[in-house]
């Protein structure tokens, strides 16, 4: 078998691509390689770009990446699109806007379908970020749709989350569900040449200021205007992200965020692994079916059953 971990560390895009496929498929073969890559992660800076469909996220990602490349930074892009709940298939169209990055050896783009995972990301997105991190990319951009409070998982992975708003798309503050405004470390008003841009800018700015009064926050999110198609405001965006990064590093918040992430991730992995093991056992000897039968016929309650199963398993 090929030593994918080693190849990734040596910079093989092919190995990185295949390892990512395994992670997406939850192929257990990935584990051993990920284990070996772990020591080489934590170096990349992770930027999340989220917002409504049609907000211009792909174009923004393209221009932002291009700007980083001019500074000599390498970039990994993870572009997430939803899978169809009916067919399980997906059309991943984000690359269209990033054509000129396609043959740049300093850029690696991976499109991912959510595969039924809620929260705006695919289940494996976090793992994919790690692969690209170990692969040596300086900055990793996660691009995904995020409109409701259910689609804010991106903040768990990103060091800086940019929320992209557009005038005329119904992106008004009133329409923002609770929680969405709070995820942003940087606000981007894209398509700022459109009517209504100044109003949206004023709304967001005043909301940010209000929040600063209500709650003590060490970081006040800047509001950046861009016209991504015309390459306007991109330098401001780069600067806004950089100053957030500086803030995180100097205040120690970056360390804190990453620790929190490691904690959540560890708990989640324990959760996943425990669940897998218990389920495998329960299904292997037909016990699950018997339990379901008993619960359906009201001979047994699911509450009792859970306690029994866990007690027995923990004893063993």
């Amino acid at each position: 078998m090929r030593d994918y971990a080693k190849e990734v560390l040596e910079g093989s895009p092919r190995a990185a691509a295949r390892l990512i496929s395994w992670l997406e498929d939850e192929d257990p073969r990935a584990l051993e390689h990920m284990e070996r890559l772990h020591a080489h992660t934590g170096r990349a800076y992770v930027v999340g770009i989220t917002g409504s469909p049609g907000a211009g996220k792909s174009t923004l990602t393209d221009k932002f990446t291009f700007a980083l490349r001019k500074q000599g930074l390498t970039v990994g892009i993870v572009a997430v699109d939803p899978s169809s709940p009916f067919t399980g298939g997906a059309v991943l169209g984000d690359r269209v806007r990033m054509s000129r990055l396609a043959v740049d050896p300093g850029v690696f783009i991976r499109s991912m379908a959510t595969r039924g995972f809620l929260g705006g990301l695919a289940k494996a997105t976090g793992e994919v970020v790690k692969v690209l991190d170990a692969f040596g990319k300086d900055v990793i951009v996660i691009e995904t749709v995020g409109v409701g409070q259910d689609e804010v998982d991106i903040i768990r992975l990103a060091d800086t989350t940019c929320l992209v708003l557009v005038p005329g798309l119904g992106d008004t503050i009133q329409s923002m569900k609770a929680g969405v405004m709070e995820i942003a470390d940087v606000f981007v008003i894209n398509k700022a040449d459109r009517p209504g841009a100044d109003q949206l800018y004023a709304e967001v700015t005043s909301r940010v200021e209000q929040d600063a009064h209500i709650r003590e926050r060490a970081w006040t999110p800047p509001v950046v205007k861009t016209v991504a198609v015309d390459d306007e405001g991109i330098d401001d965006l780069v600067e806004a992200i950089r100053s957030h990064r500086r803030f995180l590093e100097e205040s120690g918040a970056l360390e804190e965020r990453r620790r929190r992430r490691a904690r959540e991730e560890t708990l989640q992995m324990i959760h996943g692994e425990l669940f897998r093991r218990i389920r495998d056992r329960l299904t292997a000897d037909g016990e699950l079916e018997a339990l379901v039968e008993a619960i359906a016929e009201r001979r047994e309650s699911p509450y009792r059953a859970v306690q029994d199963v866990l007690a027995r398993w923990l004893r063993e």
Binding site: S83, S84, T87, G88, G89, A90, V91, L92, G93, R95, V96, R97, S99, A102, S111, A113
Partner: peptide, 13 residues
Amino acid sequence: IFAEAGMEVVYTG
């Protein structure tokens, strides 16, 4: 059509 058939389709433009 490919997406409907359950495939993950990367469209390049």
